[in-house]
Design a protein around this nucleic acid. Sequence first.
DNA 1: AATGAATGAGTATTCATTCAT
DNA 2: TATGAATGAATACTCATTCAT
Lengths: 216, 216, 216, 216
Amino acid sequence: MDCSFNMKPRWERRKDARPQELLAAALDLFVERGFASTRLEDVAKRAGVSKGTLYLYFTNKEELFKAVVRNSVVPAIDAAEEDIAGFSGHSAELLRRVVHGWWDRMGKTNASGIIKLVMAEAGNFPDLAKFYQEEVIVRGTRAMATMLDRAVARGEFRPIDINVMTQVLVAPVLMLMTWKHSVGPCAHDQLDPTAFIDAFLDMALNGLLPPPAVQP
Amino acid sequence: MDCSFNMKPRWERRKDARPQELLAAALDLFVERGFASTRLEDVAKRAGVSKGTLYLYFTNKEELFKAVVRNSVVPAIDAAEEDIAGFSGHSAELLRRVVHGWWDRMGKTNASGIIKLVMAEAGNFPDLAKFYQEEVIVRGTRAMATMLDRAVARGEFRPIDINVMTQVLVAPVLMLMTWKHSVGPCAHDQLDPTAFIDAFLDMALNGLLPPPAVQP
Amino acid sequence: MDCSFNMKPRWERRKDARPQELLAAALDLFVERGFASTRLEDVAKRAGVSKGTLYLYFTNKEELFKAVVRNSVVPAIDAAEEDIAGFSGHSAELLRRVVHGWWDRMGKTNASGIIKLVMAEAGNFPDLAKFYQEEVIVRGTRAMATMLDRAVARGEFRPIDINVMTQVLVAPVLMLMTWKHSVGPCAHDQLDPTAFIDAFLDMALNGLLPPPAVQP
Amino acid sequence: MDCSFNMKPRWERRKDARPQELLAAALDLFVERGFASTRLEDVAKRAGVSKGTLYLYFTNKEELFKAVVRNSVVPAIDAAEEDIAGFSGHSAELLRRVVHGWWDRMGKTNASGIIKLVMAEAGNFPDLAKFYQEEVIVRGTRAMATMLDRAVARGEFRPIDINVMTQVLVAPVLMLMTWKHSVGPCAHDQLDPTAFIDAFLDMALNGLLPPPAVQP
DNA sequence: AATGAATGAGTATTCATTCAT
DNA sequence: TATGAATGAATACTCATTCAT
């Protein structure tokens, strides 16, 4: 008995899936090895196609990388922007929600390894650095700043220098992402991401909330 | 009578100065390009010698890198350990002093770019990762943990999970160092390191100091 | 209409023929220059391909060498073993046949130059020495010893120390091969290989055959 | 108490010994590694001097090699020529004496490894090949031919083609020398040089002596 | 669409030789 | 004499990209 009667032939079934398979393979390898050290042949092999096929979908290595970023990092930014725009509660809760959402949507996936690679290879590939700067960093920073603006405006956070505090709040999360994909795996004491985030949020909110009003 | 016609010799014999010149050149290039992408020929050229000369002083690329780390990063760790061991005041002041010292001794120099490179290329060069882990990360983490221990023991910081908080406190400084040598230079709004550190310390100390005792 | 203007393509796709062309080129150059001094780029050039192409077929220089040996020397050993196993006449005739066969199949080709290279570079490339020892020397020696065993057992040669005589009989042929590819070409009196082999066989058989039975 | 009172200072004591020490070191390394692969720095180190010193005594690598040959190989040729010229007994005895003398004076020393190296690297260093051809091969061959001439002229050997038989008789000894410095050391069954030479002489003389006169 | 053979620029490392001291 | 620091040409191997099939 032939069970394959309604199976589409392999090439057709896969036609639309190809780019996604390549992007997934590329993300994994870029994060593991970095941009320059990732061999396109390995990307193709991991996606189950030949080197030539990769070039049918992506003009060159840089374009492949940009597609990976658009596919895995940018959506997380979109989501964060929506979170912030649609939220109406207390800003402390919003900060918690944004940071946790960021970690859940990006940190836990391999997408969190991209930032490490960008930071390390920005100097060698200025085009990629510029692209990432514009598509990710500027937008991400703006979202965080918007959130702090709101918090201060509503009197929910102490008055602070928004621009600087944006960086301060973003730093630990970026570091956690970077850590996870670099020395983390070979560190002696493993770092628990959730504990890290909670401790950080705890400290930050302690430090940001206005002092309790003094009772007369 | 001077017959020398102001001719420069083909090369100059400078045995003692060479290693430092080479280490300085190597640090600059490693930080700018990363480990794998730095060409030893460029290191030599920047130090004003030929490729072969470099090999008179360093066995190979990995040993050159280790020498760079020992020369530029390890001394900063030494200094931090001494700071902590010899301090007798309030822990808030100690934290401030350590973080500022760290930035002044390392952050402001190119040595701060090393961490970026290690994080990015640890996977590709396991020997280097192990070396850095042992010589720098373990010692640095231990120093910070020691400081927090002291702070909590003296009742100067709230009770906290030392290990996690160590990471949380270290993260922003590492990030600042990384940032400075990667996307920082091409970012639209420049980040002021001192403002960043002050804001971070302010927030952290607000978050870490024990609540003021309530007056009866 | 022919628009091709007789343009040659940048390269030709010849997957099946390539390895043999590369092996032939490699044999020639290895014999001419030795293992260490043969440049893979020259091998590729002689085979009409680029350096990179060579690496599509052979992992590295050592594997290329092994492939050359398997391709040009080992078959001659196989043939000699078969000659000996299938022969049923007088051992003097067998010795003649084996030595002549050896010369015809190997000596006359460039394969005879391999032994020179192995002897000279064994110390520098222990892996190659081991490989050659196992694949060629052991088998070749065993074949010659088998032949002498048979000869003595059948009373066709005088009783002799098989192991030592094996070496003694092999030596002149190896030397002839070595000679041909080294100082031979620049010697003043050219050496005629056939005359050499005949003189050697003549002398050897005179020395090996048992004394004629004395008439009573 | 100073016991060194009649010791010459080191530099003076060694002054004349230097070239000999360098030649000895060079012989060892050339034989072990070959001409191209021998590093002059290693030669100098083994002789206990610096690289620069070597150049005070020998213009370059090729001249060093020639000096080695003149120092270690040529004297053996001289001795063989004298042996032959001064001998008055039976030619079988002379052949034995020459072969054994050759082995004792050269074969047992590292000088026997030179021939291996010449054969292997003749193609890459034509000047060296030419030098060796003229200084060693031509003279050695002439000596052996002289001996055979004498043997046949005196009716002590059967009539033979002198030129060819010269090569045939020389071949096993050359091979033994080559073997000793190449695959010999890593061969499974060690080859006993004396047994080899005896077996070879035995076979050769059996094959060369005239048939015993038939009794009427 | 898909393949994979072919290309060739790029780089760490070695070593004979030179020469200032 | 003697040293050893400095040089730079030389070579195995890699990999992004192209293109005939």
